[in-house]
Amino acid sequence: GKELVLALYDYQEKSPREVTMKKGDILTLLNSTNKDWWKVEVKATANDKTYERQGFVPAAYVKKL
């Protein structure tokens, strides 16, 4: 199945390749080969529509579930 990670801290994206997350968010882990930056998929809701974004977050800010 898919691997999930838990956001340990809030993170505000600093570039278009990154994604914003809030502490407590559960994210889908896409790639953890880089030890510093993990690629995740974030589900977000805006205007009653759910959309998914993929991007990088600092590996130290998340932990595998």
Rank of each mutant, 00 (worst) to 15 (best):
K2S: 10
K2A: 11
K2Y: 13
K2C: 15
E3S: 11
E3K: 07
L4D: 04
L4A: 06
L4F: 14
L4S: 07
L4T: 06
V5S: 02
V5C: 13
V5D: 00
V5P: 01
L6G: 02
L6R: 07
A7I: 02
A7K: 01
L8G: 01
L8S: 03
L8T: 04
L8D: 00
Y9Q: 12
Y9G: 06
Y9A: 11
D10S: 07
D10C: 06
Y11Q: 02
Y11K: 01
Q12N: 14
Q12L: 14
Q12C: 12
Q12T: 14
Q12W: 12
E13A: 15
E13C: 12
K14W: 04
K14S: 10
S15E: 07
S15H: 11
S15L: 07
S15Q: 06
P16G: 08
R17A: 10
R17M: 13
R17S: 11
E18V: 04
V19F: 06
V19S: 02
V19G: 02
T20I: 04
T20N: 05
M21R: 00
M21V: 10
M21L: 07
K22C: 11
K23S: 07
K23Y: 04
K23P: 03
G24I: 02
G24T: 01
D25G: 03
D25I: 03
D25N: 06
I26T: 06
I26P: 03
I26F: 05
L27E: 00
L27D: 01
L27I: 07
L27G: 06
T28G: 08
T28P: 15
T28E: 09
L29A: 01
L29V: 05
L29W: 00
L29M: 04
L29Y: 01
L29S: 00
L29D: 02
L30N: 02
L30F: 03
L30S: 00
N31R: 06
N31L: 07
S32N: 07
S32W: 08
T33K: 11
T33N: 12
T33E: 14
N34S: 09
N34G: 09
K35T: 10
K35V: 09
D36H: 14
D36S: 10
W37R: 03
W37F: 05
W37I: 02
W38P: 01
W38Q: 00
W38V: 05
W38M: 01
W38A: 03
W38F: 06
K39R: 10
K39S: 06
V40G: 00
E41G: 13
E41P: 00
V42C: 12
V42I: 11
V42D: 02
V42M: 12
V42A: 14
K43E: 10
A44H: 14
A44N: 13
A44T: 14
A44V: 15
T45C: 14
T45Y: 13
A46F: 14
A46I: 15
A46S: 12
A46L: 15
A46K: 13
A46N: 14
A46T: 13
N47T: 08
D48A: 08
D48Q: 09
D48I: 05
K49A: 11
T50Q: 12
T50R: 08
Y51F: 12
E52V: 15
E52N: 14
R53K: 12
R53Y: 06
R53E: 03
Q54N: 08
Q54F: 06
Q54M: 08
G55H: 02
F56G: 00
F56C: 15
F56V: 06
F56N: 03
F56E: 04
V57H: 02
V57N: 01
P58G: 03
P58C: 07
P58D: 04
A59N: 03
A59D: 03
A59R: 09
A59P: 05
A59Y: 03
A60M: 09
V62S: 00
V62Y: 01
V62E: 03
K63H: 10
K63A: 09
K64M: 11
K64Y: 10
L65P: 02
L65T: 05
L65D: 03
L65V: 11
